[in-house]
Amino acid sequence: MTYTSSIGIRVNGEVVEREVEDRLTLADFLRNELRLTGTHLGCEQGSCGACTVLVDGSAIRSCLTFASQLNGAEVTTVEGLASEEDLHPLQSAFLRNDALQCGFCTPGFLLTAAEILSETNDLDEGTIREAISGNICRCTGYQGIIDAIVEVARSGSER
C-alpha cells in the first residue's frame, strides 16, 4: 500500500507542488524528485550533518524529516546560496581558506554556518566550533572551515 500527501513548498524561492509518498525524506525529495543533488546523504541517521538544509530559516537534518510534513515550508539548499553572478560570501570564504577538499560535507557546513550568521555576527572561534560540532568532515581538519566562518562573521557581509 502506498500512501501519499500533496505538498506545496518553496525551494530556493520557487514554488513546488507535488504529490509525495509519505515516507519520502526531504533529502530524497530534493535529490531524486527535484534533482537538487547538492544536498548530500552520508549516514541517514542524523550523525554526519551532510544533509543539512534550512527549513524556515532553521538548519535541520533533511534525512530525518519527511517531505510530507513540510506543507507550506520554505526550504533553502546549497543551490540557493549563490546568486546568478556571485558566490555567497560563505562560499567565497570557503574557497579562500581551503575549507573544502572533496566537498562532500561542504553543503551541510555552509547551511549550518548560514543559519548561525543569520542570527549574529558576534561569533568567536569557540562558538563556531560548537555550532559546527554536528557536521563531520573527513578531509580538512576543520581549521579552514572555522577560519572561513570567522572571516565572514568579522566582515559582517553575510546579511
Binding site: 500500500m1 502506498t2 500512501y3 500527501s5 509518498e21 509519505d22 515516507r23 519520502l24 525524506t25 530524497d28 541517514e44 534525512c63 519527511f66 510530507s68 510534513q69
Partner: peptide, 9 residues
C-alpha cells in the same frame, strides 16, 4: 527508500 511504508496523519 529508507523507512518502511507508513501513512502520515
Amino acid at each position: 527508500m529508507k523507512p518502511a511504508p507508513f501513512h502520515l496523519e
